[in-house]
């Protein structure tokens, strides 16, 4: 399923949880793993120097510095690198999301793994944050392959996943997310939960919905799931459909907790084109912030369809 995996890292402890999963996948799936670190942010105009994301210092970008950064990465991941052969360490400068997407496209990777946020303790993070915070968003939104975001320790190995939760909003992008969830569930023999949350949150207008309207919507959603997804599953029967109502990101988190979900699969705020505008409205963002398990965001069929 995964031949090439791109682990986009800040090469700092923030990404430790993600690193664990990335290196684990490399071993278990026998994939090639690119450990990719965008270490510096360039200024506008042409500046031959960049702000190092870890030290916060202006440095001269060049072969020497790059080699030094890679050396540092080797130290950081010394333990994980032991005994693995199929790992490539790379470092570059630029806007993190642009460079990650460029790399993913260049090497046609099957999966991107990344941490969610830069932490306060990282020196130089303050200036970096404005872009790093949205790096995950922008990558998840534009990537052609699934993007797995890991912000908390993931204790289960992927091979041993037993419950995969797929949350849908019935958008076009959600079809790709479904394909990924389904194929993965089949491959590792996990149970697939097809989940939809009816959004009954109307802001602060004080409006409420009548119970029968909600129930009707629940019924409709169930039918849509049957028609749209179950019909594609080709006899696979280890699944369950659930429709809850409430605020979508809260409901999906509650659901994943109840079912001991190992992975949540979503399409990234597909209703909004511009990730900046959907900054807070994004279900994926909210889920990532709070989820105890990895979250996969899949927007496009390009890579998943080939598996």
């Amino acid at each position: 399923m995964f031949n090439k995996i791109l682990f986009a890292t800040t090469a700092s402890p923030t990404c430790d949880n993600a690193a664990k999963v990335a290196f684990d996948l490399e071993m278990k799936w026998d994939a090639r793993l690119y450990v990719f670190h965008v270490f510096g942010l360039t200024g506008y105009g042409y500046s031959p120097f960049v702000t190092d994301s870890r030290t916060g210092e202006d440095v001269r970008e060049g072969e020497d510095y790059r080699a030094w950064v890679i050396e540092e990465m080797k130290n950081t991941y010394a333990k994980q690198l032991e005994g693995s052969e199929n790992i490539v360490l790379e470092a570059t400068v630029g806007l993190p999301h642009t460079e990650i997407l460029r790399k993913a496209r260049q090497d046609k990777v099957d999966l991107i793994i990344m941490g969610a946020h830069t932490r306060e303790e990282d020196i130089g993070a303050t200036r970096f944050r404005s872009v790093v915070g949205s790096t995950m968003q922008k990558v998840a939104q534009a990537a052609r392959c699934p993007v797995v975001i890991i912000s908390r320790p993931c204790t289960t190995c992927w091979r041993l996943f037993s419950n995969i939760v797929f949350g849908t909003d019935f958008s076009k992008a959600a079809n790709s997310a479904f394909l990924f969830a389904f194929k993965l569930a089949k491959e590792v023999g996990a149970k697939l939960y097809l989940f939809h949350a009816i959004d009954i949150h109307f802001g602060d207008t004080g409006q409420t919905q009548r119970q029968e309207v909600i129930e009707k919507k629940v019924e409709e959603a169930r039918e849509r799931i049957e028609k749209r997804y179950v019909s594609q599953m080709d006899g696979f029967d280890n699944y369950e459909i659930e429709i809850w109502e409430g605020v979508p990101y809260v409901e999906i988190l509650k659901f994943a907790r109840e079912k001991d979900g190992d992975l949540i699969v979503l399409a990234h705020h597909t209703k909004e084109i511009d990730p900046e505008k959907a900054l807070l409205g994004s279900t994926v963002e909210q889920v990532v912030l709070r989820a105890t398990q990895p979250v996969a965001s899949v927007n496009r069929p390009d890579r998943v369809a080939e598996w």
Partner: peptide, 11 residues
């Protein structure tokens, strides 16, 4: 364009 556009600011 100027070179920084394809290099870093592809957007």
């Amino acid at each position: 364009v100027i070179a920084p556009e394809p290099k870093f600011r592809a957007q």
